[in-house]
């Protein structure tokens, strides 16, 4: 098996090698969005930090959920992927601070998930599977070969979503 390809904060990584696994480690309020066309064995994983780009689309950046999803989608389409064949999986968006007094002002995880839903809806894309929200961090693995996604949380076994 080849090495995992880490997808850092505010990054998109793409691969056309079926052996590759794209990994976003320790997603808290960040959101991971994986898109794959299993027929072409092409996939990409986004690791977005914040919901919306405050500068609109003037300076598009994968750091933002809305920009990142569009960038990922456009890149896959430009490489021949077909929208109808896309497997789309969403994970992360936890609200890491659930202590009294913090909850209201720190719902960035929920806002990231909402931004992902809005953007995917606007692009007329359907989510194949998801695991979002909660209060714990997740490591997300996205398999280029078949668009499978697994999630690991602290102290728990890796599982597929």
């Amino acid at each position: 098996m080849k090495d995992n390809i880490p997808v850092g904060l505010g990054e998109i990584k793409l691969s056309q090698d079926p052996e590759d696994i794209l990994v976003a480690y320790g997603l808290g309020s960040c959101v991971g969005v994986g898109m794959a066309d299993p027929q072409l064995h092409i996939a990409g994983l986004l690791h977005a930090v914040l919901p919306h780009n405050p500068n609109g689309n003037i300076s598009s950046s994968p750091k933002y959920v809305n920009n990142g999803i569009e960038l990922l989608f456009n890149e896959l389409i430009s490489r021949g992927a077909h929208p109808a064949r896309l497997i789309i999986r969403v994970a992360g968006g936890a609200n890491m601070l659930n202590a009294p007094g913090f909850t209201q002002s720190f719902n960035i995880g929920s806002r990231n998930v909402e931004a992902a839903y809005e953007t995917l809806q606007r692009l007329k894309l359907k989510i194949t599977s998801q695991e979002v929200g909660g209060t714990i961090g997740r490591t997300v693995r996205f398999y280029v070969r078949d668009g499978r996604m697994t999630i690991r949380t602290l102290g728990n076994q890796e599982r597929e979503i």
Partner: peptide, 11 residues
């Protein structure tokens, strides 16, 4: 939690 997830709070 995981280091990355904790640091998301600041980010």
């Amino acid at each position: 939690d995981m280091v990355g997830a904790i640091m998301d709070i600041i980010l």
